[in-house]
């Protein structure tokens, strides 16, 4: 059994230099990234420094007018403060509602756990429009809550939407899956034996939670809060629909300036402020994470 017979039959492959091949394979994705991401984002940053005529057309000259406006006009400071405060409220509420869900999921097992996990993830597969619509059906003047209250004899509808309350309720629910998943990832380190050890040492369930469970889940809380906050600051579908044009936040303002007013430089400036808020949140998060060790 010698090899000579089979040598000739082995195919000759086209020779392609390794580096050329890599470049070829990465070319399409790089093109998409460049044209659809880098170029637009760089352009966006530049646009915020463009001069605009009263007609909305750009003159092509550089200008700090929009930045000056945003920094000096108290309206934009209030907008920023509104956005941050609302997002912080939403983050806190999301954490409070999600924590028991995540803890329960962490303690469940088998088939039941899988079902619950699907229930947590599946809303992510549904458009925010659909879920917001569901909230309208619950919160509107003739929705579930108000019809229920009226059936119980209360007068007049409670204003639950077209205001900040509705936006906060809707976004809290919409962002819950992210928080739950982040908390679950954080619970990974939570060994039930540690809890048992604390319990055998005579700690009451509440003390076990307060002294053992909660401290150990802090990294998950931090990650979930970062995610929720960042998504709350930048979401605008729910604020638009549940706020009904009466709730002004950074993200809704970006959209209005871009689509309705067509003041692109202002929209660009505001969207860069959104990114700055992101950056600050990320910095605080990494500080917190570091202090947690």
């Amino acid at each position: 059994m010698t090899a000579s017979a089979t040598h000739a039959a082995l195919p000759e492959a086209p020779k392609l230099d390794g580096r050329a091949l890599i470049v070829m394979l990465l070319l399409p994705i790089t093109a998409v990234n460049l044209i659809g991401f880098i170029l637009p984002v760089v352009n966006l940053a530049m646009i915020s420094f463009m001069e605009v005529r009263s007609t909305g057309a750009m003159t092509g000259n550089w200008s700090f007018a929009k930045w000056q406006l945003v920094v000096t006009d108290p309206f934009y400071w209030e907008l920023l403060w509104n956005s941050v405060r609302t997002s912080l409220t939403i983050t806190l509420l999301t954490l409070l509602v999600s924590y028991p869900v995540a803890l329960y999921l962490h303690r469940s097992s088998g088939m039941w756990r899988s079902i619950l996990l699907v229930m947590v993830i599946s809303p992510l597969l549904l458009s925010a429009v659909v879920r917001t619509y569901g909230w309208i059906a619950i919160l509107s003047d003739r929705g579930l809550i108000n019809n229920g209250l009226m059936a119980l004899g209360f007068d007049g509808p409670l204003r639950l939407m077209f205001n900040l309350t509705g936006v906060v309720i809707g976004l809290t629910e919409i962002l819950m899956p992210y928080m739950i998943l982040a908390l679950l990832a954080g619970f990974g380190k939570l060994d039930s034996r540690v809890e048992e050890a604390a319990a055998t040492l005579g700690a009451s369930p509440f003390r076990v939670f307060w002294r053992v469970v909660l401290p150990l889940s802090l990294p998950g809380i931090a990650l979930g809060s970062l995610l929720t906050f960042v998504l709350a600051v930048s979401s605008f579908i729910t604020p638009k629909l549940l706020g009904g044009g009466r709730v002004f936040l950074l993200a809704t303002e970006v959209y209005d300036q871009a689509i309705v007013t067509l003041d692109w430089p202002l929209a660009a400036t505001l969207s860069i402020i959104v990114l700055v808020v992101f950056g600050v949140a990320l910095t605080i998060y990494s500080r917190v994470l570091k202090s947690l060790g």
Binding site: P40, V41, F236, A251, S271
Partner: peptide, 13 residues
């Protein structure tokens, strides 16, 4: 990147 920022950036180009 938040989609609202990316959306605006793409809108302009």
């Amino acid at each position: 990147l938040p989609t609202i920022v990316l959306g605006l950036a793409l809108l302009i180009v």
